[in-house]
C-alpha cells in the first residue's frame, strides 16, 4: 500500500474515475432532458459532444421580476465532480440584474461552493437559481460589483464568498 502506482495502474485508475464521472453526467442529462423543471431547458445534442461543459437555458419565471427574460447558465465539470461542485455562471448577452449576480455572470449562491453536496445535481442547481431569481424583490447589482468584477478570478469557484443573508 501507498507505494507509487505503476503507470498502468495509474492509467487504469484514471480511466475508472473518468468512466464513473461520464456515467453520472449522462444520467443527469437523461433525467434533465426527460423531466426538466419548469423554465429549464438543455440542448442535449450539443452536450453529448462534450459532457464536461453544459449550457442550460433558463426562463425568468412568470409573475417574477424576470418574466419574459431568457438567460444562459454555463456548467463546467472538473474531474472531481460530483465530489467537487461544478463551476456555474451566467453567460451571454443577458446577465440577470440581481443582488447576488455580478455583472460578469458570477453567482453568489452557497450550494455552488460551501454547501455543495455530491447528492445535488445540475437539476437542483438550476432549481436553486430559478428560485433565487423568482424571490428577488428589487433588480440591482451586488453593492461591491465594480470592485469584484475588476479583481476576481475568471473561475467563480476561486472566490471565497461570505454569505450574508441568503
Amino acid at each position: 500500500m501507498n507505494s507509487p502506482l505503476s503507470p498502468i495502474d495509474f492509467e487504469d485508475k484514471r480511466l475508472k474515475i473518468k468512466f464513473k464521472l461520464e456515467k453520472r453526467l449522462q444520467k443527469e442529462l437523461q433525467a434533465l432532458t426527460k423531466d426538466p423543471p419548469t423554465g429549464v431547458k438543455v440542448d442535449a445534442e450539443s452536450i453529448y459532444r462534450n459532457l464536461s461543459e453544459w449550457i442550460v437555458d433558463i426562463d425568468g419565471a412568470p409573475e417574477s421580476l424576470y418574466e419574459g427574460e431568457k438567460f444562459k447558465l454555463m456548467f463546467k465539470f472538473g474531474s472531481r465532480y460530483p465530489f467537487d461542485s461544478p463551476q456555474v455562471m451566467f453567460i451571454g448577452e443577458n446577465i440577470p440584474l440581481h443582488p447576488h449576480v455580478y455583472s460578469n455572470g458570477h453567482i453568489c449562491l452557497s450550494i455552488l461552493t460551501d454547501d455543495w453536496s455530491p447528492a445535488l445535481s445540475v437539476q437542483s442547481v438550476c432549481l436553486s437559481v430559478v428560485s433565487m431569481l423568482s424571490s428577488c424583490k428589487e433588480k440591482k447589482r451586488p453593492p461591491d460589483n465594480s470592485f469584484y468584477v475588476k479583481t476576481c478570478s475568471k473561475n467563480p469557484k476561486k472566490t471565497r464568498w461570505w454569505y450574508h443573508g441568503k
Binding site: C108, P142, D144, Y148, T151, C152, S153, K158, T159, R160, W161, W162, H164
Partner: peptide, 11 residues
Amino acid sequence: MPKDVDSDILC
C-alpha cells in the same frame, strides 16, 4: 461579499 483566496492559508 467575496474574499479572494488563491492561497491555501486562510486568515
